[in-house]
Amino acid sequence: MAPTSIIILAAGASSRLGHAKQQLYYQGKTLLQHAIETALGTKAEQVLVVLGANADSLTAQISHYNISLLQNEEWESGMASSIKVGLKAVKDFQSAPTHVLFMLCDQPLITTELLNAMMQAKEQTHKEIVGSSYAGTIGAPMLFDASLLNELMQLSGQEGAKKLLSKYPEKIVAIPFPDAALDIDTQQDYQALQDLEAS
């Protein structure tokens, strides 16, 4: 089985929130630290983090982790540019074909168990795409077979990896994970997370 690399996409400026969501705190750690520690606890061979906006301050908080830190100079052009930065680094680091699992830093309830289950589902079903299902959709985290990485490199602008889901519905297996529906885009989202933590 090909190894799996986890790419955490954390380059955005959090414009809807008004300040860097990567630095919001949950259970005593920032959302970005949560995502990194969740990824590092899996069976993946490497963890890469793509930064863009606020890269300097974020780097200071996470440089001690055993990760590959990447800088997306074109982060303002959209998520596709961060996907490309991460994939290029994976290809540079790994000589063998590598599956890639994309994570976002604003889904704080994602667990190491879910990510490991996704890798296991890939191995058992041999499907090219493993997604998480929640709130009536399939989305991140998402794992892609090495054979699809060149197509992911063709994404542009605001296009995300979900574009391939509509193109290849027969290649998808989805793992139900309702908690993935909580992503932090607004102050109301963050308040819901804080309420959950306090309950």
Results as ranks from 00 to 15, higher is better:
20 A>V: 08
156 S>M: 08
141 P>C: 10
17 L>P: 05
78 G>R: 08
149 L>K: 04
19 H>C: 12
179 D>F: 12
31 L>P: 03
193 L>T: 04
21 K>L: 05
77 S>D: 13
185 D>C: 10
108 P>Q: 03
168 Y>W: 10
5 S>Y: 05
22 Q>N: 14
59 T>E: 12
144 F>A: 07
30 T>H: 04
116 N>Q: 09
124 Q>G: 00
191 Q>D: 10
178 P>W: 03
71 Q>H: 13
17 L>I: 09
124 Q>V: 07
86 G>A: 05
166 S>I: 08
121 A>F: 03
181 A>S: 15
157 G>R: 07
88 K>W: 08
135 A>L: 08
158 Q>C: 09
119 M>V: 06
51 L>M: 05
121 A>I: 00
121 A>G: 00
190 Y>K: 01
100 V>R: 03
45 E>S: 15
173 V>W: 09
52 G>N: 07
69 L>H: 01
13 A>T: 09
167 K>Y: 00
147 S>Q: 11
123 E>A: 14
76 E>N: 08
68 S>M: 06
79 M>S: 11
90 V>N: 10
13 A>R: 13
157 G>N: 12
52 G>F: 05
159 E>R: 06
20 A>R: 08
36 I>Y: 05
177 F>D: 11
73 E>P: 01
157 G>Y: 00
135 A>D: 12
38 T>Q: 07
3 P>N: 12
121 A>E: 08
142 M>Y: 06
9 L>G: 02
28 G>M: 08
128 E>F: 04
73 E>T: 13
68 S>I: 09
139 G>K: 02
